[in-house]
C-alpha cells in the first residue's frame, strides 16, 4: 500500500467536502427530521413499559442512518471521477488498486464520522448520560461502520459508469438497508424472512454495536440483538471482503 497515494486521495476528497458546505448541512438535516419528527410521532404509539422511550431507542439507529447515507453517497465521487475522466489519472498511476479503494473508503469514513459525531452530540437532549468511555466507544464504532459501508458503496460504484444508473440503484438499496437494520425496530421482532435479510445486512451489526455502547444495560425487546463480539467480527470481516472485491473490480477491464 502506498501511504502517499492514500493520503492525497483522502486530502482531495476532504478539500472538496469542505468547499461544499451545503453537503454537511443536508446530511445532518435528514437524521434530525427522523429523530425529532418521525421518532417523536411513533413514540406515541409505542407502549411506555418497553424499557426506554422510543426516541432513545432509535438514537443508535439514527446515527447508523447518518453513516449509511453519508458513506453510500460518498462513493458517488467514484462515479463523478469516472464521468469526468479523473479516475483514469488515478488508475494509470503506479498505485495498487487496494490503496485507491482504501483512500476512497477512508475519505467516506472521515466525512461520515464527522456527520455522525454531530448527531451523537445531541445525546443530552434525548435524556442519555454517556460516559467518556462510552462516547469513545461510539466514535470507534462509527469509524468502523463508516469504513464498512463506504467500502460497500465503492464495490457498487465500481460496477456503474453513469450517475443516473448509480443513483437509481443507490435509492433502491439504501432504504431497505435502513429499514432492515434494527434502526427503527428490533430485529428480534421481525418476521422470519425479514429477520434473515436483516442478518445479511452489515448495517444491522453496526447499529447493534452502537446499541451496546449507548445503552449497555438495555433490557427486553429494546436490548441489542447480537453480542458485541459478533458485531465487531462481522463489521471487520465484511470490510475486508468489500475492500478486496472493490480492488479486484478496479483491475483493468476487458
Amino acid at each position: 500500500m502506498e501511504f502517499n497515494a492514500i493520503y492525497v486521495i483522502v486530502a482531495r476528497e476532504l478539500k472538496k467536502f469542505l468547499r461544499e458546505k451545503s453537503r454537511l448541512f443536508s446530511a445532518i438535516a435528514r437524521p434530525l427530521l427522523w429523530l425529532f419528527i418521525v421518532g417523536a410521532g411513533i413514540s406515541r404509539l409505542v407502549p411506555r413499559d418497553t424499557g426506554m422511550p422510543y426516541t432513545q431507542f432509535i438514537f443508535p439507529g439514527i446515527i447508523g442512518m447518518t453513516i449509511l447515507f453519508s458513506s453510500m453517497f460518498s462513493s458517488i465521487s467514484i462515479i463523478w471521477d469516472k464521468e469526468f475522466g479523473f479516475m483514469k489519472e488515478i488508475l494509470v498511476a503506479p498505485v495498487s488498486r487496494t490503496s485507491i479503494v482504501v483512500g476512497k473508503a477512508l475519505s467516506g469514513t472521515i466525512v461520515s464520522t464527522i456527520q455522525a459525531s454531530v448527531i451523537l452530540a445531541l445525546f443530552p437532549f434525548l435524556g442519555f448520560q454517556l460516559s467518556l468511555i462510552q462516547i469513545m466507544l461510539v466514535l470507534l464504532i462509527c469509524v468502523s461502520v463508516s469504513f464498512c459501508i463506504s467500502s460497500f458503496g465503492i464495490v457498487l460504484a465500481t460496477f456503474y459508469e453513469s450517475y443516473e444508473s448509480f443513483s437509481v440503484i443507490m435509492n433502491f438499496i439504501i432504504m431497505p438497508m435502513f429499514f432492515l437494520s434494527g434502526a427503527m425496530y428490533p430485529v428480534k421482532l421481525l418476521p422470519d424472512i425479514l429477520k434473515i435479510v436483516a442478518q445479511l445486512n452489515p448495517l444491522t451489526y453496526g447499529i447493534d454495536a452502537l446499541k451496546h455502547a449507548i445503552f449497555p444495560d438495555g433490557m427486553g425487546q429494546m436490548s441489542p440483538d447480537f453480542s458485541l463480539l459478533s458485531c465487531a467480527s462481522v463489521i471487520i470481516g465484511t470490510s475486508l471482503v468489500f475492500v478486496f472485491v472493490a480492488s479486484r473490480s478496479f483491475e483493468r477491464k476487458g
Binding site: A5, V8, R19, F84, G85, M87, K88, E89, A93
Partner: peptide
C-alpha cells in the same frame, strides 16, 4: 506519463492542486 484524449483534470481543484495530487500519486 499520459495525456488522454479527453481531459482528466479535476476541474474543481486549482492547477497547482492538480499537479501536487499527481506528485503524491507518483511518490
Amino acid at each position: 506519463g499520459i495525456v488522454f484524449q479527453d481531459t482528466t483534470l479535476d476541474k474543481d481543484l486549482t492547477a497547482y492542486e492538480n499537479l501536487v495530487f499527481h506528485a503524491y500519486l507518483y511518490d
